[in-house]
Amino acid sequence: MTSPLLLVSEFPVEPNAVDKAVTVIREQVSGDGRPQGSLYRGLEAPTVLELTPVDTLAQLDPLLEGWGALFAELAPLLTGDVRRQALRFVGAPKPAAEQLPDTRYVQLRHVEVRPPVYEEYLAWREGTIFAEVHKSPKIETFLAYHSLVSTEPGVMFVSGFSCPPEEYLQVFTSERYAEIGRQAHPRFVTDEGLYTRLYERLTGAEGA
């Protein structure tokens, strides 16, 4: 069952320091009483992503205590500051069996929606974005969130898939999806905060 909240943490690191950063993060975040997340390696940039499901914001307290030490150890490896945001779960066009997608890859898809048309946007995406997601066998999990505490306000989709990324991306490069994009902008979404990012899950000795 998907958790009510999701903590998204991204660590931009030197290209040759991804493995070292993963080791540091794993050692620092492991501990009794701390929510456990999953780690991912960025496929388009040297970054490490951590997705941590939580039930309440109070569950962040044990993590907050260790963030200072984690930053101090990671600082020599970072090319930019740590980016964190708390997201509120909204719905799941394709639910996950667990709290996060159990897939080899995830994609984060982010848009900022114009507040006056937010409710209209929610209804619109059911018959457009979500309809395409339901039709595609390549998309195994698709979770919808909205920013709760973030410097990047808006809608975040966490899409899970296991096929090669180039095959997955075909879903979003079709003529139908191009038409969906034309409908969305500028009617619903702004130019700010529009991005997609691909990641590969780290397992075993690599990640949680």
Rank of each mutant, 00 (worst) to 15 (best):
T203P: 00
E65F: 14
E120H: 11
P165K: 09
V13N: 00
I129N: 04
Y177P: 04
L49T: 03
P12I: 02
P165V: 10
H110S: 05
K94W: 08
G66K: 09
E166H: 15
G80F: 06
F11H: 05
P153H: 13
F161S: 04
Y177V: 11
D19P: 00
T79C: 06
I129Y: 10
A69N: 04
Q170L: 12
D81W: 06
L122A: 07
A131D: 08
L122C: 03
L57T: 10
R109F: 15
I25P: 00
I180M: 09
P53K: 02
L202D: 08
G37R: 03
S147M: 10
T141F: 01
P12F: 14
L39Q: 02
R187S: 15
F172G: 13
E152S: 14
I180D: 04
V133E: 05
S3R: 11
D102K: 05
R197V: 14
T203D: 11
R109P: 00
R104M: 07
T103V: 15
P164T: 09
Y199A: 13
E167Y: 14
E140Y: 06
A131H: 07
V90A: 07
E120A: 12
G66W: 01
V133L: 05
P186W: 07
F89A: 06
A97L: 12
T151W: 11
R114H: 08
T173I: 03
S136D: 10
V8Y: 02
F130T: 12
E126N: 03
P115Q: 04
A96W: 07
G207V: 09
A17I: 03
H110F: 09
P93C: 02
R176W: 04
L100I: 09
S162N: 10
A72K: 09
L87T: 09
T23V: 04
L87I: 10
L7K: 11
T2H: 05
T196D: 11
S3D: 10
P115G: 02
G160M: 04
L6P: 11
T52H: 00
K20V: 08
P186R: 09
V48D: 00
E126S: 02
P53V: 03
E10C: 14
L122M: 11
P46C: 02
V171E: 12
V8I: 13
F11A: 02
P137F: 07
D102F: 01
Y118F: 15
S3V: 01
A45I: 00
P76E: 04
F172C: 03
T47K: 15
E206M: 05
L49I: 03
R197P: 08
Y195H: 10
P4K: 06
T2Y: 00
L70Y: 00
G207F: 07
L5D: 02
A86W: 15
P164C: 13
E179Y: 05
F89R: 09
H110M: 03
A96I: 10
H134P: 00
T151Q: 13
P137L: 13
P115N: 02
A184S: 08
P4T: 12
G160Q: 09
R83Y: 11
G207D: 08
A96N: 05
P53L: 03
P35A: 01
Y195L: 05
F161L: 09
L78T: 04
V22E: 05
T128N: 13
E206K: 09
L49W: 02
E192T: 14
T128C: 01
L100S: 15
V106G: 04
P115L: 03
C163Q: 15
L169E: 12
L60C: 04
